[in-house]
C-alpha cells in the first residue's frame, strides 16, 4: 500500500544549522495495516507524514502509494488518496461553515461537478447517518457552525471528513494530544471503530506508549532518522514500555 524507498531529507541544507532528518529511510506498509509511530520530539515523525502527504518534498528517494509513484505529485492532488487529522482541532475544519458544509468539502474528492449544489437531500441524509455513528448528537446540528463545537467534537468531525470517502491512507498526527482525557478516549475509540469498519490503512503518531502498543497491529519507532524499532503483532504485547521510555529520554 505504502512504500518508501531511500528517503532523504535535510532542512537548511548547506547552512550552519543544517539538520539531517532522514537518511535513506525505507518503509513498507501493507494494505489494512494500522501502524503506530513513536519517537522523541524532533525525531521526524511529522516530517515523515508531511512527505507522505506532499506538504513537503524529500530531497531524494521515492514514495509509492498503491504502487503509484507519488513522490513529486502536488499536495492537493495527493490529498485525494490521503485522509489527514492534525493535532490542533482548529486546523481540520472551517469554523464559519456549518457542519454539513464542512462535510460536503470532504465529498469534493469524489467528483468534479463544481456547479452542483454542495448540500442536497441525498448527501444530507448520508451526513446524518455518518454523524449519528459518532454518538455525539451532532446529527441534529447539521446547520450549526463548526466554530461553536468543542475541540473534541471538532476533531470527531475532522476524523469523519478524513474518512468520509475511504482514503488509501489515513495519517493521524497526535490527533488526540490537544484534547481532555474524556474526549481523547472518545476520539481514540472512534478512530478504532472507523478504521476497523472500513479497513483503512492507517499511520498514527502518538506520544502515549500504551496507546502505541494497544492500537493497531504494528509499531515503529523513529530515532536519528532511522527506524530504530519495528514490532509487529504479538511481539508488541511482550515488550516492556518502560525500557523504551528511558531510551527516548536519552535521545
Amino acid at each position: 500500500m505504502l512504500r518508501i524507498e531511500n528517503l532523504c531529507k535535510t532542512f537548511h541544507k548547506n547552512q550552519l544549522d543544517e539538520k539531517h532528518i532522514f537518511q535513506n529511510l525505507n518503509l513498507t506498509i501493507d494494505k489494512g495495516d494500522f501502524v503506530t509511530i513513536i519517537g522523541g520530539n524532533g525525531a521526524g515523525k511529522s516530517t515523515l507524514m508531511n512527505m507522505i502527504a506532499g506538504s513537503i518534498f524529500p530531497d531524494s528517494g521515492k514514495i509509492f502509494i498503491d504502487d503509484k509513484n507519488v513522490t513529486s505529485m502536488p499536495e492537493y492532488k495527493r490529498a485525494k488518496l490521503i485522509g489527514r487529522v492534525f493535532q490542533d482541532p482548529l486546523k481540520g475544519t472551517a469554523p464559519n461553515l456549518t457542519i454539513e458544509e464542512n462535510l460536503s468539502i470532504a465529498m469534493l474528492k469524489n467528483s468534479s461537478k463544481n456547479l452542483a449544489l454542495a448540500i442536497n437531500k441525498q448527501n444530507s441524509e448520508f451526513f446524518k447517518t455518518k454523524l449519528a455513528e459518532l454518538n455525539l448528537g451532532l446529527e441534529n446540528r447539521l446547520k450549526a457552525k463548526v466554530g461553536l463545537l468543542s475541540g473534541g467534537q471538532r476533531q470527531a468531525v475532522t476524523l469523519l471528513m478524513a474518512t468520509l470517502i475511504k482514503p488509501k491512507i489515513l495519517l493521524l498526527d497526535e490527533h488526540t494530544a490537544a484534547l481532555d482525557p474524556k474526549s481523547r478516549d472518545k476520539i481514540l475509540s472512534l478512530t478504532k471503530k472507523i478504521t476497523d469498519d472500513e479497513d483503512i490503512t492507517t499511520l498514527m503518531i502518538t506520544h502515549n506508549l500504551e496507546d502505541a502498543f494497544s492500537f493497531g497491529n504494528r509499531t515503529i519507532m523513529l530515532k536519528h532518522g532511522k527506524i530504530s524499532l519495528d514490532l509487529k503483532g504479538e511481539s508488541r504485547q511482550t515488550i516492556d514500555p518502560s525500557v523504551l521510555f528511558d531510551d527516548e529520554l536519552t535521545l
Binding site: 492537493y76 468539502i105 469534493l108
Partner: peptide, 18 residues
C-alpha cells in the same frame, strides 16, 4: 462552498485536496 472554506481555513482545504 470551497471558496468560502478556502477563506475560512486554507490549510484544511489543501489537506482536503483542493
Amino acid at each position: 462552498v470551497s471558496i468560502r472554506a478556502t477563506g475560512d481555513n486554507e490549510q484544511m482545504m489543501r489537506a482536503q485536496g483542493v
